[in-house]
Design a protein around this nucleic acid. Structure first.
Lengths: 329, 329
DNA sequence: CTGTTAGCGCATTCAA
DNA sequence: TTGAATGCGCTAACAG
């Protein structure tokens, strides 16, 4: 597919290539008739400027990078979808990088991908803060998703703290006093937020007991934690996310434990299927697609010299479904 | 982040920029000692070649485009994941375009994104064949997913025909004689394959009756078709995909119909959640991530002058779970 | 083996 | 208003 170049259009239209360039970029300082002729020729030749050459000379690519830790995770899928949708509405393209949970590669991947784009939107929940701090200046403009506020860099996050508090309050109102918390990824940012909220709730109500059980972030690790949850004597479990909750739900059910009669289970995220488990899952609904959209909005502001909102926080909504019920006495 | 350029490295190392270029590209015709010095300086300055400039001069970007109709669809998510993983292993980046089901924009989106990359992998199940034929030459190298074999262009597909046949055979062996088929997207390629397989099965067994009920491709359209399915008198339903099956399952269950006792339901795809509905869904498991990987393999071959497999077909596997059972007498 | 030169395709000074 | 140069940063002929 040999595409027409600007010189051919210029020659065909009998003008210089600068004139063609001006016309194509809508520069009004071109004689109307001439401009029309150029447009005609360009249309006839199917010409449009080579984006690569344009990128090189203009110093911008109209493309941004999105770095996610795991494309298999429904939450990141939703973030990506919201992001992609919003960016394309503004005429931007999206280059995607899946780090596949290799935290040790995250920095290099981010830096590498950044060189091909105008900025990076980073989902790196497990990257240590000091490394993040070191990375950010190297990849700016950047927007960070689901991390605490960062200096100089806009942040867009769901508030896992209030989500946790809300879920705990819900469980307490149901009479639960002993909770199992399936902590997910070690040292993840949102994990810390959950932990702090739990500590606060414990402080506020001495009758509340929360036993932390370490688990992973996916379905299987939820299932694997079933015995530990059952052994803990908790009447309700707070899972790190819906995937974990579903794994736990599946595993305890197959052990003959009835949910929510014998054990209440709540998750985080409200991924698409959470409404259709049996019983449907009580969860804190994280507006992931919105997160993606807001992240783009911040990036767009950065890219166009505007003032981005610095630290956007979206409050998850507690969605009570059927996996939580009053504590058995 | 002003990055070091090749001229600075050259100056700093006291050599010409071509020497630096040679060293950076591993050209062996450079004196070992000199090369070492250059590498040292490059490392010290944190230099690496600007990919944009490289792309312009080399005529390749090390990036490919993936065009999907809907990023919210688990199947395309899985394809994308497999693709992204495979491509990144080969040092390629992935630019993603979600056409958001706007078939009328698919061609322009594909052409536009193609200009920024070295090729496009196209998921466009609903694009009419004549438009596809017209599009393909304009975006080559291209690989097409889930469409019939195309001239000149490698194709990677799941065989929805054998999947349909397998599911029907399964249902027949269970004693079902009257099936409801929830046809999904009008004029989709895989839809045609399903339809042909149904026709073949009907021809082969006159006792088999299949009533086609038109529905969409998502959960809601499955739910919306519930009444029609129930009214059809079918003892089993074949849904266009798992999403539709789940919608149907949910809706009929809430109407007091027991699945699978009163009605058997089967889907297509085996999306991650299909194993966890209640009852778990019988479905034809489409290896979506593999599809993505194979599509990349074909593209990679195209890009490196190799011979791609022309028409890869992956056979879905019938996964019998609990949503199908013997027909009630 | 190394340096010089010429583009890749375009936007943008600067003159005219 | 238009055209002729210059350069974005790099690779690859071509000489030496």
């Amino acid at each position: 597919m040999p595409r027409a170049k600007i010189t051919e259009v210029a020659r065909e239209a009998g003008v210089s290539l600068s004139t063609v360039s001006r016309v194509m970029n809508g520069n009004p300082t071109v004689d109307a008739a001439l401009a029309e002729r150029v447009r005609e020729v360009a249309a006839r030749l199917g010409y449009s400027a080579n984006p690569l050459a344009r990128s090189l000379v203009l110093g911008r690519t109209q493309t941004i990078s999105v770095v996610v830790p795991d494309l298999a995770n429904p939450t990141f899928q939703a973030i990506l979808r919201g992001l992609s949708h919003a960016a394309s509405k503004d005429g931007y393209h999206v280059l995607i990088s899946d780090t596949e949970e290799r935290v040790e590669d995250e920095q290099e991947i981010a830096v590498t991908t950044r060189r091909r784009t105008d900025g990076v939107i980073l989902c790196a929940p497990r990257l240590p803060q000091d490394e993040l701090s070191a990375l950010l200046p190297a990849i700016g403009p950047a927007v960070v998703i689901n991390r605490p506020p960062q200096p100089e860099v806009p942040t867009v996050s769901a508030d896992y703290g209030v989500a946790t508090a809300g879920l705990i309050a819900h469980l307490q109102s149901l009479g639960h006093r002993r909770l199992a918390f399936l902590s997910g990824a070690v040292r993840s940012a949102s994990g810390e937020a959950r932990r702090r909220a739990i500590a606060a709730a414990s402080d506020a109500d001495p009758a509340l007991e929360v036993v932390e059980i370490s688990a992973g972030v996916d379905f299987d690790s939820g299932a694997a934690a079933a015995d530990a949850v059952l052994a803990s004597g908790a009447t309700a479990a707070l899972a790190f996310n819906d995937l974990v909750a579903m794994g736990l739900l599946s595993a305890v059910t197959s052990r003959g434990v009835r949910v929510p009669d014998d054990l209440s289970i709540a998750g985080f995220d409200d991924i698409p299927f959470s409404a259709y488990t049996s019983p449907p899952l009580t969860t804190a609904s994280v507006p992931a697609a919105d997160l993606g959209e807001r992240a783009w909005a911040a990036m767009h502001a950065l890219l166009s010299g505007g003032e981005p909102e610095t630290d956007v926080t979206l409050a998850p909504q507690i969605v009570v479904r059927a996996s939580t019920a009053p504590a058995a006495h």
